[in-house]
Each structure stands twice: as structure tokens, then as C-alpha cells.
């Protein structure tokens, strides 16, 4: 049994401890956002946050993540109460097929939590591990900039609050 903290809740996981986190998220916890894309850590579709840092969950075994704080896109907000990054992606209509988008949201969230006012070059560098095949890149860039603005505004309005929970 492995205890995993996912989106603020502890889960007892009864699986081979070598199992990459992705399959535990999808098959045991029934979370959809992290996606299987390559299983090789090359495309970023499976990204989640571990202690605020983006990790490729398809090659990260759960045994390595005990005691780490894991957040998935589901932990950033739901369809009715999207988090600022999710809202920015909706507002910019930054998706075509949308399959890669949760990974981009994770990369963006990790960036903006550390770097609230990223330069264009910093955004591109942060998003480089993620692949999009539909060509939604320009909208994704706009969404990240929009999210940065929104998060700064909300932090300014509520200085004690934690951006994007």
C-alpha cells in the first residue's frame, strides 16, 4: 500500500509500487485530465504537479511520490469553478482536440506560481516539454498571458491568498 496525496486528499493505493503515477490517476482515482500520450516522457500530455513542479506522470513511479503533494488539473478547478489558468484557456478558446491541453495547463500553472510575470521567452521555455499537434500554440500563449494577468490581479486584490490554490 502506498499513500499518495492527490489534490489535497490522501489515497491508499494498492498497486505495484513501480506503476507510473499516470495509470494510478486514471484507473484507480478515475481522473481524466492527465493523458497517455507517449509513455516516454516526451510529449507532456501526462503532466501533473509534484510539490508545484511539473512532472511527466507516465514515467514517474508512485513509489517515488510518497510524501509529495500531487496536484492534477482536476485540483485546479472544475467546469463550474475553473481556476484562473483553466478560465484563461476557456476564454481564449485555446483548444482544438484538447487532448494535450491539461498538460499545458500544468506547465503554465507551475510557471505562474513561481514566475508571476513571465516574459514571452520564459513562457515558451516553460511550455517546450509539451507537444500540441493541432497547432493551437498561439492561443495557448495568449491563454498563459491572460492567466498571468488574472493571477496577478487576484493576488493584488487578495495578498494573503495563494494563487491558484
Amino acid at each position: 500500500m502506498i499513500t499518495l496525496s492527490v489534490n489535497g486528499r490522501d489515497h491508499q493505493i494498492d498497486a505495484d509500487p513501480a506503476t507510473p503515477l499516470l495509470y494510478v490517476l486514471r484507473d484507480d482515482l478515475h481522473l481524466n485530465a492527465a493523458k497517455f500520450g507517449c509513455g516516454l516522457g516526451q510529449c507532456g500530455s501526462c503532466m501533473v504537479l509534484a510539490d508545484g513542479l511539473p512532472v511527466v506522470s507516465c514515467v514517474t513511479p508512485v513509489v517515488a511520490l510518497e510524501g509529495r503533494r500531487i496536484r492534477t488539473v482536476e485540483g485546479l478547478g472544475g467546469a463550474d469553478d475553473p481556476g484562473p489558468v483553466q478560465r484563461a484557456f476557456i476564454d481564449e478558446q485555446a483548444a482544438q482536440c484538447g487532448y494535450c491541453i491539461p498538460g499545458f495547463i500544468i506547465s503554465a500553472q507551475a510557471l505562474l506560481e513561481r514566475t508571476p510575470s513571465p516574459s514571452d521567452a520564459e513562457i515558451r521555455t516553460a511550455l517546450k516539454p509539451n507537444l500540441c499537434r493541432c497547432g493551437t500554440h498561439i492561443r495557448i500563449l495568449r491563454a498563459v498571458r491572460r492567466a498571468a494577468d488574472a493571477m496577478r490581479t487576484s493576488v493584488a486584490a487578495n495578498p494573503g491568498g495563494e494563487g491558484g490554490q
Binding site: P17, A18, P20, L40, P61, V62, V63
Partner: peptide
């Protein structure tokens, strides 16, 4: 633990 990490992270490739 390292062997388990190897199986989940490295063995794939």
C-alpha cells in the same frame, strides 16, 4: 526502492 523506481521510470526504454 531504487530498483522499483528503475522498473517504473527507466525500464520502459
Amino acid at each position: 526502492r531504487a530498483a522499483t523506481i528503475y522498473r517504473g521510470a527507466c525500464a520502459t526504454c
